[in-house]
Design a protein around this nucleic acid. Sequence first.
DNA 1: CGCTTTTGACCCGCGC
DNA 2: GCGCGGGTCAAAAGCG
Length: 308
Amino acid sequence: MGDDETKPRLGTDFACSSGWTLGSEADSDYFFGNDRESSILSEFGWNLRSDTDRNREKDSFSPFHQIGLDDGSDLAGTSAFLLPQTPPPPPLAPSNLNPTVSAGLVDKPGDASPSNPSVSSSSSDEPQEKSTTSDAKQPEIPSKNRKKGQKRTRQPRFAFMTKSEIDHLEDGYRWRKYGQKAVKNSPFPRSYYRCTNSKCTVKKRVERSSEDPTIVITTYEGQHCHHTVGFPRSSAMAHEAALASRLNDSAPQLYYPRVQLPLGGGIDVTQPHRGTQPQMPREPTPHPQPSTDEGLLGDIVPAGMRSR
DNA sequence: CGCTTTTGACCCGCGC
DNA sequence: GCGCGGGTCAAAAGCG
């Protein structure tokens, strides 16, 4: 069917061009003020702040930032909180066809794994161990090859809550679904996707809020080591690159999933997404900057904000 | 034919 | 130690 035609895309470009602002006090606890959602997210080890928390803390140390729409548009009133307690803020504010929004949070790289034993060795060893097999896609050691006692490592994750009728939001990357599981306390299954790029270890999880079926919770894990498949990179990438490098001052590993939207107000929601389709007709715009790498926050976070 | 999705089985971590 | 739930694997089916 015309799934592709209605597939919304995530994108910071869109977010920016749509009037997203940071630090506004736009009403925003739509998602995060929801205990239910908070609990869901907290299951992943994320930290959420409700408006109450925010109000209580902002005067003291403003532990987080808020991304909100406050431009009087249909999107006004929606927002997302970014919790910078971990080095980096989230990738982007996903946008959607629906007037909605999203929220994002991050978890600490250090907390990435249930127990983060010598992360130093795990991150480099895993790929090697896996390299003995034909495909190097697995960031993690396949359960079968994984040595006993060797814990699964998990990369930093970032989640969005987007109001959409479509589960799998277009974000410029190609994903292959590798699993689906029923989630406890939720009538909706959770889908697992992996980036189709053989060298990319990014994973994505998509599930619907059990409380509000119109809300899709998308979780990214890891960082893309390549560019999007078809979206032209915007000038915002320059910010992104700058930010990414800065954010990674302390963290050698970039891990923000990069999501982009076509410039021009997030059009193109009709672009095909499936892998069998030829890549977007338009060629990826050569970025003005070599972009040190990915990290999508740059696209969404205004320069002023970033220099907090 | 190649790639993606589906889906049951299996593995692993964690709490009790 | 056991059971539960989350996450991943991989064979089979589906699709363009």
